[in-house]
Design a protein around this nucleic acid. Sequence first.
DNA 1: TAAAGTTAGTTACATAAAGTAAGTAACTTA
DNA 2: TAAGTTACTTACTTTATGTAACTAACTTTA
Lengths: 101, 101
Amino acid sequence: MYEFELCPRFEKAVGLLSQRWTALILYQLMSGPQRFCTMTEKLGVNGKTLTERLKELEQQEFVIRAVYPETPVRIEYSLTEKGMALTPIMREIEAWSKQWM
Amino acid sequence: MYEFELCPRFEKAVGLLSQRWTALILYQLMSGPQRFCTMTEKLGVNGKTLTERLKELEQQEFVIRAVYPETPVRIEYSLTEKGMALTPIMREIEAWSKQWM
DNA sequence: TAAAGTTAGTTACATAAAGTAAGTAACTTA
DNA sequence: TAAGTTACTTACTTTATGTAACTAACTTTA
C-alpha cells in the first residue's frame, strides 16, 4: 500500500544504525578490539542486548569474534573492513555534534 | 555504576539518529518541504509515530512547521539550518551503503 | 581438593516503545 | 446537507528492551 521511493540500500544502512546501541558498539570498536565486559561497562548496554547486537553484527560481517584460549579465556570483538568503512560516517556525526549539540 | 567515557554530544547525536524513523524523516526533508500525509506514504511510518517524531524534531529545532491557511489547510515541515547541517552525515551513509550493502 | 572467583553468556519476567485501525475536528466542495 | 480532505488522536495489541538472577567452563587460593 505504501510507496517506498528511497534507495533500499540507504534504507538498510539507516535501519542498521537506527537500531539502538548498534552505532555506539561500532564506534567503540573503532578504537580497537574490545571484550564483552568492557563494552557493557563503557556503553551502559545490558548483556542480553549486547549479545544480540554482536551476533547480528558478526552475521552481517561488521565484526569478528576472536577466542584466545588463555587463562581465563579472552574473547575479543573487532571490526572487519566493512565495519571499518563506517568510520567516515562516525567522523561526520562527531563533527556535527561538536557544532550543533 | 557505569562509566560513560564517550563524548556526551556524540552520544546524544547518535541517540537522535538511533531513534527509529528519525533519520529517514530528516533525509526525506532534505529533498524539500513536505506535508504530513506525503511523509507517511513515502516512508511507511504510521501517523502516531510521525507525529511524535516531528514534535521532537521541532522542539529540538531540526524542523519547522509552517501552516498555510488555504483550502484545505496545508501544513509543511521543513529543515532548519541545524537540520540541514546533517546532510554530510547522510551523504556518507549513502556512499557507504552503495559500496557495502 | 573443595570453595570461591572470573568470564561470557542465557533465561524468565517486567516495563517501555512502536504499530494498527478506527475515530475526531475543522473545513470545503458537489 | 452529505461526502471528502487533511491533520491528527485514541484505544488496544504486539514487539523490543531492561533487570536481575542463573549457567557453564575454567582458574586460583586456602
